[in-house]
Amino acid sequence: MLTEKKTCRDELLIALRELIKTTGKNEFSINEIITFMNNQGTMFKKGTIRNHIKYRCYANAKQRYHATNYDDLIMLENGLYSLNTK
């Protein structure tokens, strides 16, 4: 049986949607989503998830370091993030 290989971004977006359904709010900290993903059995390391949130998937980042970036998340006040609904 073949299983579809998911990228860190794929798992992150799935986890965020589940977390939003669970908490009822579109607002989370990096540690909150890392803990949630670890509880779901992610194979990705804490640093990989953190880098995706802070650099690859962060729409309003001042500087981007990767060749491929996504506008999935928006940084709110106090280091909180939300899923970009645009």
Rank of each mutant, 00 (worst) to 15 (best):
T68S: 03
N69D: 02
T68F: 02
I49V: 15
T23G: 03
E32N: 09
T23E: 12
A59Q: 08
I30M: 08
Y70V: 02
T42H: 09
Y65K: 11
N39K: 15
K62S: 12
I74Q: 05
G47E: 15
T23R: 14
Y58V: 00
I49D: 00
T42S: 14
A61I: 01
F28M: 13
F28K: 03
N51M: 06
C57M: 03
A67M: 07
T23D: 06
T48R: 08
K21P: 03
Y58R: 03
T48I: 10
Y65V: 12
E77Y: 07
G41V: 08
K45V: 06
F44G: 01
Y55C: 04
M75D: 07
F36Q: 05
N26K: 14
T42G: 06
D71Q: 10
D71T: 13
K25Y: 13
T35S: 11
Q40T: 09
N31Q: 14
M75R: 14
T48A: 04
Q40I: 13
H52P: 01
K45S: 10
G41L: 07
T68H: 03
M43Q: 11
F44W: 14
T23P: 02
M37Q: 06
Y58S: 02
F28W: 11
T42N: 09
Q40Y: 09
H52M: 04
E32I: 02
I20K: 12
I30L: 11
A59M: 06
D72P: 07
E77C: 03
K54H: 05
L19P: 00
I30V: 15
H66M: 07
T42C: 12
N39R: 14
T48G: 02
C57V: 00
